[in-house]
Amino acid sequence: MAEIKLDFSDVSEGNRKIEDGTYEAVISSVGEDATKSGAQFMNFNMVIRNDIEQKFQNFHVWQRIFRSKTDDTYPMRWINQIAKNAQMENGKKYHSYKELMDDFWNRPVKVTVKNEKSEYNGKTYENTNIKNWAPTDFPNVQHKAKSENKDKDPFAGNSNPIDIKNSDLPF
């Protein structure tokens, strides 16, 4: 069995919520999804940057942009708002939503979030909503995804061959 070591610098924050405020973030992914009732949306996943001294590093915030029910397209004014603040190229053309969504990857933004309650079908929900988008104050992104902070493959980059004999194999 491998050695197991406790590391208290890597602990779960539990159910802590991001406090209302403005945070530097990086867009970690954008993809399409749907609600249980079938409403399609583009889901922006932002991670609070860990290369800048701020609270809630590595916490996630999301923004959903729903497809129009009338013409089955996304409202470009909302996408343009995020793209402008992510400092993407004005006038750039894409051949698909997938190509557009891929271009958002790892772009820095500044978001203002607010915790709010909403009611739907008689149930009350607590949501962390993005209330404002702005260009980052720190365009040089050095954010490390949590998975990048873990121990890496010890064999990666090793150009030496590994010699395994049949007698070494258990079968």
Results as ranks from 00 to 15, higher is better:
P75Y: 11
N121I: 04
S96F: 09
I48P: 02
S159F: 15
W133A: 06
A156C: 08
L100Y: 03
N160I: 02
Y23R: 09
F56D: 04
N85W: 06
H95V: 09
N58W: 00
I48A: 01
S9D: 11
V47A: 14
N158Y: 06
P161T: 10
Q57F: 04
G157E: 05
Y97K: 12
V111K: 01
P161N: 13
V11F: 04
D72Q: 15
T35P: 00
A156S: 13
P170Q: 12
Q63Y: 11
V26K: 05
R77P: 08
I164T: 04
I18G: 00
W78Y: 15
I79S: 08
D33G: 08
T22G: 03
V11D: 09
L169S: 02
K152E: 11
P108T: 08
I130M: 11
W62Y: 15
V61R: 12
K114F: 10
N149Y: 13
E13L: 15
D10E: 14
E24Y: 05
A34W: 12
K110H: 07
V11L: 08
Y120R: 04
F44N: 02
K117W: 11
M1V: 12
Q87M: 09
D168E: 09
V141E: 12
V26H: 00
G31I: 14
A134Q: 07
T128F: 04
V61P: 01
E19T: 13
Y23C: 03
A2F: 13
P170T: 12
E53C: 05
Q40A: 11
Q142K: 08
Q57P: 11
D103I: 09
F59C: 08
Y97T: 08
K5N: 11
